[in-house]
Nucleic acid binder design. Structure first.
Length: 790
DNA sequence: GACCTTGGGTTTTTT
DNA sequence: ACCCAAGGTC
């Protein structure tokens, strides 16, 4: 879509009394109605989970259009993910038709890229600038740290990256930081140098990182009031969803957008209503959010933005939505009870008229695989009862938890997807292909070129690269330019030829880039470099998979062109850079979704499994030490609970592998915050951990020979499923103070007899390595493994 | 310059 | 358990 900014100033009728079609208000409760109908400079909609905020937001926008208070082009709606934006646009379209297409409905990042691409030159950037993701930023930082030998000062790539990110989110750029920094502190001045070089590196590569996208837009508006005025005039109604998760930079951006337009920036021929001073009044601001669902403090989100909204905008109106249309009362009671433990919050009580519903089901597994088996079995039971896989989701706190779930799901033949987990665009071969494309779109991006200079192998190794780099620096050229001079560098004939060939290929393709379809560009590159053919020819199954991934990427570029026929290479690259985990959720593909709690925000499912509800995991041990960390973890738990419509399951495991080492896990403190009467424990932590509790357990059966996986600290989980859910299940036991020494013979319920070959760890975490006579070598947690000393 | 082995560090969450 | 960097060998 193209936007002709200068044609956008239109009439703005502002009736005092809003007359909105009753049809638009159908089914809304009084608070929701008020949120749709209120007219004023600022509105805060405090929307509890499941309180119908999207309905309110879409109808509010539709109302503005229907009543002719606004043109579609005067609407700017900011959502949290691209998927949410697409959904919102769809729902608005249902209400007002194709007018929806004229609105800006996008994420902060997408909106900023759009603005920055238009105004790139003003900011000293070229239009095709690259957007660096976290990995790209770190790759750049890594080079810089190496150059400066900064790791000797105790700097780590991740540490520096995080600090820079934080500074940018607070709108502190290098110059500002340089003025604040204590230069007497050698570490601080060293950090300044790192920050400076990183900033220069991005600049030279004509690149921006994620944080820059927001910050640079703010700087753009502040440095060029006439540019800011374009957007201030244009966007008369700014609406922001998930406002509790905005950071300082995003807040500043909103403030810039809703500033009144000074008279000198009002065109003489404007058709817009001007104030007494000849200026144009500020756009109206509507924000929607719920401080109880603020879960992004780690990336700078500041709850104060929503909590202090009324101080920020003194004339603001606040509407509170507490009636929940999503979950059963049992689920809401649990959610209310849990979040009630966070002090310092505005009391809010979710309620429904929909009835109590089922009790929450709890389960304590012996191992993560055992827990996963419970999840799988319950999902099968739900499926039998008529639920579809699409309406079921499994939540985890960390990405690492998905593995056992995946393994069991595969074995149970449950179709699943892991939005954000596939990391398609993070695979090496995809990053390589993308680097070629980036280098075409942005020849200044040395980092992208360096990545593929020797991919596929063409004999351009580190030494040759260094020579080119040195030449580039000497002559002030880009690496790409330097390649064309390769003949003058006294390199070997073979390597010189390889460099010139690559330079020519890139130049030839670049010449077509302005008009060619991304798919054709990519195809040419993959063919001419021989990358694809090389993978196909290697005979390695992994390489074959890589080749298929590249084909998939080509297919995606085709699909991109189909959806946006005029989309060029830069548009495609932008789309990929801003593609988020939640965007790949397809709620009709017939599979169960496994995702992190963060990804789950904003979604809802009939049945939700909250797994790994253990101390150290939820709350995560790293956040426990941070101020406000526990409260944020509790909000995360709360977000998880409130995603469930009808059924909620909470599960945990007695053991959890950490860095590959099995260790004992304790039930999360959050479990105790749910009233006991609400949970129906199939196996409670008490049952599982009881001293010397020895339960009958299902007889192990191994149909079909060797199991695909074997778990040293778990029972084989391929026993018949019916037996598993109905009967009293796992043996869970406690061997008390049992100690083992190297050489001891033991008997294991599943693995038979064996000899202890090593003992590591202490106390409840001590682990025996056992060579079994028939089952091979296993590592066992001595305290709870089903073993006895012989 | 490519390939292999080894050892250390590492995971919270993400646009 | 896994990923990556470094160092050794061909």
């Amino acid at each position: 879509m193209t936007w002709l900014l200068d044609d956008l100033d239109g009439d703005q009728a502002t009736p005092d009394a809003v007359t909105v079609d009753e049809e638009l208000l159908a089914g809304l409760n009084p608070q929701q109605r008020e949120a749709v109908l209120y007219r004023g400079p600022a509105l805060l909609i405090v929307a509890g989970a499941g309180s119908g905020k999207t309905s309110v937001l879409t109808r509010r926008i539709a109302g503005l259009i229907a009543s002719r208070e606004a043109w579609p082009s005067q609407i700017l709606a900011i959502t949290f993910t691209n998927k949410a934006a697409a959904e919102m646009r769809g729902r608005i379209r249902e209400l007002v038709g194709s007018d929806a297409d004229g609105m800006w409905i996008s994420t902060f990042h997408s909106a900023c890229v759009r603005i920055l691409r238009r105004q790139a030159e003003v900011m000293g950037l070229k239009q095709g600038f690259t957007i660096y993701d976290t990995a790209d930023s770190r790759a750049l930082l890594k080079r810089i740290l190496k150059e400066l030998d900064a790791d000797t000062l105790g700097f780590s790539v991740a540490g520096v990256a995080n600090r820079i990110s934080k500074l940018k989110n607070e709108l502190t750029d290098v110059d500002l930081f340089a003025r604040q920094v204590n230069m007497d502190d050698p570490k601080e001045s060293a950090f300044l140098e790192l920050f400076r070089r990183y900033t220069q590196g991005l600049r030279r590569a004509n690149a921006l990182d994620f944080d820059d996208l927001i910050a640079e837009t703010v700087y753009l508006f502040r440095a060029f009031p006439d540019v800011a005025a374009l957007y201030q005039r244009r966007f008369r109604h700014v609406l922001v969803d998930e406002y509790q998760d905005t950071n300082a930079a995003q807040y500043a951006l909103i403030r810039e957008l809703v500033r009144p337009v000074a008279p000198e920036h009002v065109p003489l021929d404007t058709r817009m209503r001007v104030g007494a001073d000849g200026g144009i009044p500020a756009a109206t601001l509507t924000v929607v959010g719920d401080s109880d669902q603020s879960i992004y403090a780690f990336r700078g989100a500041d709850m104060r933005n929503i909590v202090e909204f009324e101080q920020d905008f003194p004339q603001a109106k606040v509407v509170l939505l507490e009636q929940n249309y999503r979950s059963t009362q049992n689920i809401l009671d649990a959610a209310n009870a849990v979040i009630g433990n966070n002090f310092d919050r505005v009391a809010k009580n979710l309620f429904t008229t929909g009835g109590a519903g089922e009790r929450i089901v709890g389960y304590t597994g012996y191992s993560a695989h055992d827990e996963a088996q419970f999840v799988a079995d319950e999902i099968e039971a739900l499926k039998k009862a008529g639920e579809t896989y699409d309406d079921v989701a499994v939540f985890v706190r960390t990405n690492a938890q998905t593995r056992p779930l995946e393994e069991i799901f595969i074995r149970s033949a449950i179709p699943y997807r892991i939005p954000g987990g596939t990391k398609f665009y993070e695979r090496a071969e995809i990053k390589d292909a993308m680097a070629y494309l980036i280098q075409i779109a942005n020849p200044d991006d040395d980092l992208a070129l360096r990545r593929v200079m020797n991919v596929p192998r063409r004999g351009i190794g580190p030494a040759t690269e260094a020579a080119l780099q040195a030449h580039a620096e000497r002559t002030g050229q880009t690496l790409r330019d330097a390649m064309r001079d390769a003949a003058s560098l006294g390199l070997g004939a073979k390597v010189t030829g390889a460099i010139l060939d690559l330079a020519k290929l890139l130049d030839d393709v670049a010449a077509t880039a302005a008009t060619a379809a991304p798919a054709d560009i990519l195809n040419t590159l993959l063919q001419q470099t021989g990358y694809l053919a090389g993978l196909r020819a290697s005979g390695d199954a992994q390489d074959e998979a890589r080749a298929e991934n590249l084909e998939e990427l080509v297919a995606q570029t085709r699909e991109f062109r189909r959806q946006t026929p005029e989309g060029n290479l830069v548009d495609f690259l932008t789309g990929v850079a801003l593609f988020a985990a939640a965007d790949e959720i397809d709620d009709e593909d017939g599979s169960v979704s496994i995702m992190t709690l963060h990804t789950a925000k904003g979604l809802e499912y009939d049945a939700v499994f909250l797994t790994g509800v253990e101390e150290e995991l939820l709350p995560h041990r790293i956040s426990s030490g941070e101020p406000g960390g526990i409260a944020e973890e509790r909000r995360l738990f709360y977000v998880g609970i409130t995603r469930a419509r009808k059924r909620l399951y909470v599960s945990l495991s007695m053991t959890r592998s950490l860095f590959g080492e099995p260790s004992v896990a304790m039930p999360s403190r959050f479990l105790q915050e749910i009233p006991a009467s609400l949970i129906d424990w199939k196996q409670s932590p008490g049952d599982a951990a009881g001293r010397n509790a020895m339960r009958p357990r299902a007889v192990t059966s191994r149909e079909g020979g060797r199991p695909k996986f074997s778990y040293s600290t778990s029972f084989p989980s391929d026993r018949p499923k019916k037996e598993w859910t109905s009967a009293v299940t796992a043996t869970v036991r406690d061997n008390g103070d049992l100690t083992l020494a190297v050489g001891d013979r033991i008997r294991h319920t599943d693995f038979g007899e064996g000899r202890v070959t090593d003992v590591t760890g202490t106390g409840s975490k001590s682990i025996a390595e056992v060579q079994f006579d028939t089952a091979g070598r296993k590592r066992l947690l001595i305290k709870i493994a089903p073993i006895e000393k012989l």
